[in-house]
């Protein structure tokens, strides 16, 4: 473990919807420059975890610290200005708007520096996903699933995040497209972006991660270096369990 303060730190976090508590006592740290993967089956609470970090789901107890400072009430519109961006489950694109509009909106939080940030970030996104430049004037809802996922990642990158949260970027995509997206994630890491990745496809996620956490019914049941988790017998069981559920 490094001595430096982690970029993101959750301690005993509880959260949920209405009367139901979904996350019980979550501890999680993400260090600067790391790629951390959170894996788990359907309904384990992975999406809820990411939504809680950005403030789309309220924290009930416990603390979240980002860049060493406690975030008392997380709000997505504020956190994105501080370099924390989420690529949400289901992509949540602005469907009727063009690809370019979607991307430019990604830099909305930059405020007065919007113009400069837009130019700089757009160049980076177009380099990472050249297809988005070709599709610039097309409504986002007319893109293929893979292109939509690239746009969702691209939109989040437009805020020039320091910490990128991704919710199942591989979901429903063909292997080639998945490979393209994950190689983009590797490239982003090389550029210094810290990544917290949620995936059902444990093998895929752990192959790209430094560390991993396994979630089950709202708790972290196992964590450690990604390589160790890949070799772990119980992870294989969970992974296969998830596979069966998906296949049924």
């Amino acid at each position: 473990m490094s001595e430096a303060t982690p970029l993101l730190e959750l301690a005993s976090v509880r959260a949920g919807y209405g009367h139901a508590e979904v996350l019980h006592d979550i501890d999680l740290t993400v260090g600067e420059g790391e790629l951390v993967a959170v894996i788990g089956a359907n309904g384990a609470g992975k999406s809820t975890l990411l939504k809680t970090i950005v403030g789309l789901v309220p924290v009930r107890s416990g603390t979240i610290a980002y860049r060493g400072a406690r975030v008392a009430t997380p709000r997505p519109e504020r956190l994105v200005r501080k370099g924390l961006a989420l690529v949400p489950e289901g992509r949540l694109l602005f469907g009727p708007m063009t690809v370019r509009d979607n991307l430019e909106l990604g830099a909305y939080g930059a405020g007065r520096e919007r113009r400069a940030v837009t130019t700089r970030a757009l160049a980076r996104v177009n380099e990472l996903f050249p297809v988005l430049e070709e599709r610039a004037d097309q409504p986002a809802e007319t893109l293929s699933g893979g292109e939509q996922q690239m746009l969702a990642v691209g939109r989040a990158l437009m805020s020039e995040p320091r910490l990128l949260l991704l919710d199942e970027p591989s979901l429903g995509l063909a292997p080639l497209v998945i490979a393209e997206i994950f190689s983009a994630l590797d490239e982003l890491r090389a550029q210094g972006v810290t990544i917290l990745l949620v995936e059902q496809d444990a093998r895929l996620a752990l192959r790209h991660a430094d560390r991993g956490s396994v979630m089950r019914t709202g708790r972290v049941v196992l964590e450690g270096p990604a390589a160790d988790l890949l070799a772990d017998e119980s992870v294989r069981t969970i992974y296969l369990g998830a596979w069966h559920q998906e296949g049924s």
Binding site: P76, E77, A107, G109
Partner: peptide
């Protein structure tokens, strides 16, 4: 929700 995520 997505609007909030981009800082709106």
């Amino acid at each position: 929700d997505a609007a909030r995520l981009v800082g709106i």
